[in-house]
Simulated scan of single mutants.
Amino acid sequence: MIKQTLGGLLAAACMLAQAANPLFPKLYTADPAALVDGGRVYLYVGKDDAPAGGKDYLMREWRVYSSCDMKNWTEHGSPLNVQTFGWAKADAWASDIARRDGKYYFYATVEHKAVPGKAIGVAVSDSPTGPFRDARGTALVTNDMTKETDISWDDIDPAVFIDDNGQAYLYWGNRVLKYAKLKPNMVELDGPIHTVGVDKFEEASYLHKHKSVYYLSWSREFPEETAYATGPSATGPWTYRGVIMKKNEGVKTIHHAIVDFNGKSYIFYHNARLPGGGEYRRSVAVEELRYLSDGTIAFVPQTADGPAPNPGPGCKVIRQ
């Protein structure tokens, strides 16, 4: 009986430690967005469907996973796809999510049917795992609303942030970083669109706060590395601080998200380390992120093991 109990404990310990990078070896996934809610981390990824040797991004849906220990991930299927937005025609590109007043708002990059170029839509759900429905019936941002560049993909990669005073912000962009306030309903811009000058901005902006400092991070240069700046408010002014993660091998992008969970911080990103991986067949991974005593972020190396298990109170791994 004792041997059986010990065997069971050892097996459970092994299962807690079994997950490693990349996180989801059965699928090619990219562009992670993360939300901490109810003692779990919810991770939203785009699904790369490009065939071997493909020459373009082929992405039709987003998928969601959750974990209470940063090691064991439960798959919850696809909470929405391109067809969720009746005005969109293709491309389930990068996204972000926030919770407000008991509802979950999902901001997504898609290709617009009628307005040439990429657009940002917003979907809403009563659950972090969906299903989500179009919250507006129209795009929140379309390519004709911004004129800073002549490319059709400059309105991508939404990043939503709700400040301590309740004011919500949406950051986004390619080549030029833009932001706008959101109204309390989370589905309308509240005022003009602003541009932000940061060092060698390419795409994938992300805004988070640690203690009293605001951190604006982004994909810098192309091929991309993850860089960041700090500031005293959600709109800066921003002071460039350096690189968090170096450029990938095998894929030019690196899109990231940062969360605090059970007393530690984590950075999600993607690379091309699954067998058969590459530019259009990426794989999401995660590492622990650490702050130095002066508030700067320590450089984060990519690892095969990923972070150690970090279960919170009442953590129950959902087996599948």
Results as ranks from 00 to 15, higher is better:
237 P>Q: 06
237 P>S: 11
237 P>K: 06
238 W>L: 02
238 W>Q: 00
239 T>P: 01
239 T>V: 13
241 R>K: 15
242 G>F: 04
242 G>A: 02
244 I>C: 06
245 M>F: 10
246 K>W: 04
247 K>D: 03
248 N>L: 04
248 N>R: 02
248 N>C: 07
249 E>K: 13
250 G>T: 07
250 G>A: 06
251 V>I: 14
251 V>S: 11
252 K>S: 15
253 T>V: 09
253 T>F: 06
253 T>N: 13
253 T>W: 01
254 I>L: 12
254 I>F: 04
256 H>Y: 12
256 H>D: 09
256 H>R: 09
256 H>I: 10
257 A>S: 15
257 A>F: 12
257 A>H: 14
257 A>T: 15
258 I>C: 01
258 I>V: 15
258 I>F: 13
258 I>R: 08
259 V>L: 12
259 V>F: 11
260 D>P: 02
260 D>L: 00
260 D>I: 01
261 F>K: 01
262 N>L: 09
262 N>R: 05
263 G>E: 10
263 G>L: 10
263 G>Y: 12
263 G>Q: 10
264 K>V: 04
265 S>K: 03
266 Y>L: 04
266 Y>V: 05
267 I>H: 03
268 F>C: 03
268 F>M: 10
268 F>I: 05
268 F>A: 12
269 Y>A: 05
269 Y>N: 05
269 Y>G: 04
270 H>I: 06
271 N>V: 08
272 A>R: 00
272 A>V: 00
273 R>M: 11
273 R>I: 04
274 L>N: 10
275 P>H: 08
275 P>D: 14
275 P>A: 15
275 P>E: 14
275 P>R: 08
276 G>F: 01
277 G>V: 05
278 G>H: 03
278 G>Y: 07
279 E>R: 10
279 E>L: 10
280 Y>H: 14
280 Y>I: 02
281 R>N: 01
281 R>I: 02
282 R>M: 05
282 R>W: 05
282 R>K: 07
282 R>T: 03
284 V>G: 04
284 V>L: 04
284 V>R: 01
286 V>H: 06
287 E>F: 05
287 E>C: 07
287 E>M: 03
288 E>N: 05
289 L>F: 04
289 L>Y: 05
289 L>E: 05
290 R>L: 07
291 Y>H: 09
291 Y>T: 02
293 S>N: 13
293 S>Q: 14
293 S>T: 14
293 S>E: 14
294 D>Y: 11
296 T>P: 05
296 T>I: 06
297 I>Q: 05
297 I>M: 07
298 A>Y: 00
298 A>H: 04
298 A>P: 00
299 F>S: 12
299 F>A: 14
300 V>F: 09
301 P>A: 13
302 Q>L: 08
302 Q>P: 00
303 T>I: 00
304 A>C: 00
304 A>W: 11
304 A>Y: 10
304 A>D: 13
304 A>L: 10
304 A>I: 02
305 D>P: 00
306 G>I: 03
307 P>F: 09
308 A>C: 03
309 P>W: 11
309 P>F: 12
310 N>P: 08
310 N>R: 05
311 P>A: 13
311 P>G: 11
312 G>Y: 11
312 G>W: 11
314 G>D: 08
314 G>S: 07
314 G>L: 06
314 G>Q: 10
314 G>R: 06
315 C>T: 10
316 K>R: 14
317 V>Y: 07
318 I>N: 13
318 I>L: 12
319 R>D: 12
320 Q>P: 00
320 Q>T: 13
320 Q>D: 13
320 Q>H: 12
320 Q>C: 02
